[in-house]
Design a binder for these strands. Structure first.
Lengths: 153, 153
DNA sequence: CCGATTTGGATGCAAACGCATTCATACTAT
DNA sequence: ATAGTATGAATGCGTTTGCATCCAAATCGG
């Protein structure tokens, strides 16, 4: 294989570092606020977005791109914490619908607030508006292209 | 706090997704080639870059931004695999110098090759040259800015 | 010099994760 | 109907991680 462009490779390393830098700070600020890890926020947002009936575990799995046992255990913990409720699933007795509870919404709000604060403190200050827009656009096109590549197997 | 710009926040989410997408593929291609995880490559590269005397564990820790026990165990495994060697440290009898072995260089080469192939397959194709350059530059400035922010405590 | 503190590194333990397996239900074809 | 397969979800187990602690050597203060 031809050696890939130096600049492009360096870009990937930098992306790794930026991700590690910001993700680290988000997680640690959630933790020091006594809140669960970031993946809960993703899950709670998916459930909120899904509306009344909630989601089946396997739907959440696809949305979050996690391994199946990870979802199983995540939901177990979230249910134990009262953030979600299992309701019987009429059309498939193997599974359940997981729905957001009032307490889950409260947790979601507190997490979202810490999350936004962490980004305001550790992400936004390091980008100009122009850079932030360019980044968003480039990464958006990356993801579109990657999804297309996955599509045509 | 004021609500941060929508575009900028979306940019962060996208960065997370791109990172997860590419990192996942790198790790899984290393694994299916029977090679150790990506962090070994980082460590081996640091050691190579450090030259003759190698590095102390705590130096590696700073370079890789890992927790101290993680480095301790990583080096334990790398030593067990013959990729690195511990040599006594003259100037501080608490620690060692870790140096690269011939076998470590060989592992490094094989990992670097898989790594480059994975990026060629899963990262580069989704960016134009222009986008890759822009990304590299924006993230470079981000990291400079972030480092500066850490510097002035 | 000598006690107190700091720093480099390892280790014990509990929680988290990845993988394979298992169980139950749903689908499919004959 | 029924055998065979495929899918949703949970669980057991070995490995990895994170945190706190611990030990030893180095540094600092008197």
């Amino acid at each position: 294989m031809a050696e890939p462009g130096k600049k492009a490779l360096r870009g990937w390393r930098r992306l790794e570092r930026v991700h590690a830098f910001v993700a680290d700070r988000i997680e640690s600020e959630l933790k020091s606020a006594g809140l669960p890890p970031l993946v809960w926020l993703r899950a709670l947002e998916e459930l909120e977005h899904a509306g009344e009936d909630g989601l089946r575990p396997f739907e959440l799995q696809r949305a979050l791109d996690l391994e199946q046992p990870a979802v199983s255990r995540l939901l177990e913990k979230m249910a134990a914490a009262g953030a979600v409720a299992r309701t019987d699933c009429a059309e498939d007795r193997r599974g359940w619908n997981m729905t957001l509870t009032a307490s889950g919404r409260e947790i979601r709000d507190r997490m979202a607030s810490i999350h936004a604060a962490a980004l305001s403190a550790h992400y936004l200050p390091h980008l100009s508006d122009k850079q932030a827009r360019a980044l968003d656009e480039i990464l958006g096109e990356f993801l579109d292209s990657a999804r297309a590549a996955k599509g045509d197997h």
